[in-house]
């Protein structure tokens, strides 16, 4: 039994079977990596968790509640946050404002007409947002426009935005893609630290094996739309099926 349970999920795009009978359990408090070659269906699977795609058949449940057929904002309210492959941030706003928005958002998503309150006076929210930026080592950049950040910083900012919501499950889609080695290592440290401090469950899609084996406590290998193995990192390393999936043949 996991916090996130995926059962017999199928998804086709026209004639292409992107996901075939996928089963997955993400245990509470763990970092669970989903790896696989390009086109294995990793991002499609993640899209099925956040309401971006609807599986053809199968179930996705989070804390016993089905995530299918409900809208993205309701999924987030249930406790699932996502960091995207290309950072989804508010580019025209400052870094601090970016983080303040999730801080303002009520956990239950309720609408509040706070048109006559002043951002300037919201010291609690501001402090919380500043603290999130300290956590992702971006405190000194809080006045910069999000647009002008480096790619690595944009992703760190997006993580801060997700963490500001105290999610139960954090989905990360290639959090280190396109990052320099130093940035990648910083991200590994950051995620490890978050895991230690807050015990947030994470599901990570990643190509970089260095990242995967540094962080993951559990790994699922996806190939051609189906989970071929799920095991601990040590066992995955020596698994013949995994070698085959990645290298296209047995040795």
């Amino acid at each position: 039994m996991g916090i996130l349970e995926v059962r017999n999920v199928n998804k086709s795009f026209g004639g292409l079977k992107a996901l075939h009978e996928v089963n997955l359990d993400v245990q509470e408090g763990m970092i669970h990596a989903i790896i696989g070659p390009n086109g294995a269906g990793k991002s499609t699977l993640l899209n099925c968790f956040v309401g971006k795609l609807e599986p053809d058949t199968g179930t996705v449940t989070f804390n016993g509640r089905s995530l299918l057929g409900i809208r993205p904002h309701e999924i987030n309210q249930a406790g699932v946050s996502r960091v995207f492959q290309t950072p989804e941030i508010f580019r025209d706003l400052t870094v601090l404002e970016n983080v303040m928005i999730p801080c303002f958002a009520k956990r239950d998503g309720s609408f509040e007409l706070n048109a006559l309150r002043r951002i300037h006076n919201e010291t609690d929210i501001r402090e919380k947002a500043e603290q999130m930026l300290v956590d992702v080592t971006m405190a000194e950049k809080h006045d910069m426009q999000a647009e002008s950040l480096s790619r690595g910083d944009k992703r760190r900012l997006e993580m801060a935005m997700c963490l500001a919501q105290d999610p139960q499950l954090l989905l990360l889609d290639e959090p280190t893609a396109g990052m320099a080695r130093a940035d990648t290592n910083a991200t590994i440290d950051l995620l490890g630290e978050i895991q230690d401090k807050r015990k947030i469950t994470m599901a990570i899609i990643e190509h970089d094996m260095h990242v995967v084996f540094s962080l993951a406590e559990r790994i699922s290998v996806l190939a051609q739309g189906t989970v071929i193995v799920e095991d601990t990192p040590d066992k995955i390393k020596g698994n013949a099926k995994v070698q085959e999936a990645y290298l296209g043949g047995t040795h």
């Binding site: 508010f90 706003l93 928005i101 303002f104 048109a115 309150r117 951002i119």
Partner: peptide, 14 residues
């Protein structure tokens, strides 16, 4: 200058 206004700017942005 309100949080409401910030949300509206966020709608425009993303």
């Amino acid at each position: 200058r309100s949080p409401f206004g910030l949300m509206l700017k966020a709608i425009k942005s993303n």
